[in-house]
Simulated assay, not measured.
Amino acid sequence: MDEVVIVPWQELAADTLDNLLQEFVTRDGTDYGEQEISTATKVEQVRRQLTKGQSLLVFDSATETVTVMTREQFDQHQRHPG
């Protein structure tokens, strides 16, 4: 069974967080709608979501990756893992 653990993003070095967010927003399959948005803008949008507590930085032990989940996605995963 995979485990998803919240990563305390506030404790990461600024450049590490920037790199993680940039990797996240440039992943294949990340959909931001029809309008083209710059990578820097996408990173700032996700950073704002983290700051407001709307999204969480999480580590997935099954895939050994770090990703961003909305609070709702995280709660759903906790109720129905796997």
Rank of each mutant, 00 (worst) to 15 (best):
11 E>I: 02
6 I>H: 03
19 N>V: 02
59 F>S: 05
48 R>Q: 15
67 T>D: 11
27 R>T: 01
12 L>D: 00
11 E>P: 01
29 G>L: 00
77 H>E: 06
39 T>P: 02
64 E>T: 06
72 E>S: 13
68 V>T: 05
12 L>G: 02
76 Q>P: 00
82 G>S: 14
2 D>G: 09
49 Q>M: 15
19 N>E: 14
4 V>E: 07
37 I>F: 07
31 D>E: 13
13 A>D: 14
40 A>S: 11
28 D>W: 12
53 G>R: 11
31 D>N: 13
46 V>E: 05
42 K>S: 01
59 F>V: 00
10 Q>Y: 06
13 A>G: 07
73 Q>F: 03
57 L>Q: 01
29 G>V: 00
79 R>V: 03
23 E>S: 13
66 V>C: 07
32 Y>T: 03
2 D>K: 07
38 S>H: 04
38 S>P: 13
1 M>W: 06
65 T>D: 07
70 T>N: 09
3 E>C: 14
50 L>F: 12
14 A>G: 12
18 D>W: 08
68 V>C: 07
19 N>K: 10
12 L>P: 01
5 V>D: 05
60 D>Y: 13
6 I>M: 08
60 D>V: 09
62 A>S: 11
61 S>N: 10
56 L>P: 04
39 T>E: 09
15 D>G: 05
81 P>F: 01
53 G>K: 09
8 P>Q: 04
31 D>H: 11
5 V>M: 08
25 V>W: 07
47 R>H: 14
14 A>V: 15
13 A>Q: 08
67 T>I: 02
68 V>A: 05
69 M>N: 02
25 V>C: 06
25 V>F: 05
33 G>L: 04
49 Q>K: 15
17 L>W: 07
24 F>K: 00
32 Y>W: 15
15 D>R: 08
20 L>I: 04
40 A>M: 08
57 L>T: 01
28 D>L: 11
72 E>K: 12
39 T>M: 03
7 V>S: 06
80 H>Y: 13
29 G>E: 02
27 R>F: 08
18 D>C: 05
78 Q>I: 04
8 P>F: 00
7 V>L: 10
58 V>L: 01
27 R>E: 11
55 S>L: 08
4 V>R: 10
80 H>I: 04
30 T>A: 09
80 H>W: 12
75 D>T: 04
7 V>F: 14
63 T>R: 03
21 L>I: 01
2 D>C: 11
27 R>D: 05
2 D>Y: 11
36 E>N: 10
23 E>N: 13
52 K>S: 09
